[in-house]
Amino acid sequence: MLEGKLEQASLFKKVVEAVRELVQDCNFDCTENGLALQAMDTSHVSLVSLLLTADGFSEYRCDRNLALGINLVSLTKILRCGNNEDILTLEAGDSADSLVVRFENTQQDRMSEYALKLMDIDQEHLGIPETEYAASITMPSTEFQRICRDMQSISESITIDCTKGGVKFTCEGDIGSGSVTLKPNSSADKPELCTKIDLSEPVSLTLSTKYLLNFCKATGLSQQVTLKLADENPILVEYPLSAGHLRFYLAPKLDE
C-alpha cells in the first residue's frame, strides 16, 4: 500500500496545476523511492517527468510498486477542496480502485477526506537517453516566464541562442521582432537571481512559444530554472524541487 504525507498541500497542488494542461490521464508510479509521473502530451511534442522523492514526504511508505491511473482534471477538483497550508495525505491500497486524499488543517481541528476513482491506463514507459548537452543555462524562473510571456504576443516560436557571452532569446512575427539577451552574472547574497551558463559549444534551438509558456506554470515551484540544450535535440526545462524535480522536454522546430 501507499501512504504519503506532505506537510503542505501546496506542493502537490502546484505540481498538478503545472502539468494538467499538457497531460490529462496518466499513471503515478509509486515505489519505495517516491512518486513519479512520466507522460507525453497527446501531440507527442512534449514530455513531463515528475519525481517526488520519498524524503520529501514527512511520512512515506510504499510496500509494493503501484501504478495509480489518475485523471488530472478530476484530481485537480479534489485538490481544490484543500487549503495550501493543509497537511496532505495520499493513500491507496495494493488493489485499490480509488486514491484517498486527506487534508488536515494546521490547527488539527478540521479533517476532510476525499476518494478519487482510479483508472486503468495503459501507458508506454519511455527511456530518456543520457544526452550530452552543449549548453546548460540556469536562470531565475520568473525571468524565463517573463521572456516567454512577452514573446508570446509576437511569435509562435522562440529561438534560444547560447554562446559563452550569454543567452539570447529571439522571436520574429508578423508585427515585428524582439530579442532578450542575458549575460552570466552572480550575486552571493541572492543566488536565486543569478544567471549561470555552462557551455561546451554554441547551440541554437527554435521552440514553440506556447509550450514553453505552458512549462512556466511551474514557476511557483522553484526560484530557478535550468534549460539544457543540444543541437537538434529536445530542450530540457528543469524546475528543481526540494526533494525531486519537475522536468519538461520539448522537441525543437526544425527547418525544412
Binding site: H125, G127, Y249, K253, L254, D255, E256
Partner: peptide
Amino acid sequence: TAQQGRLDGFFKVL
C-alpha cells in the same frame, strides 16, 4: 518556416 518536431524519435519505448 520551421516544422514542429516530435519526441517519438528521441525517446524509446521501454
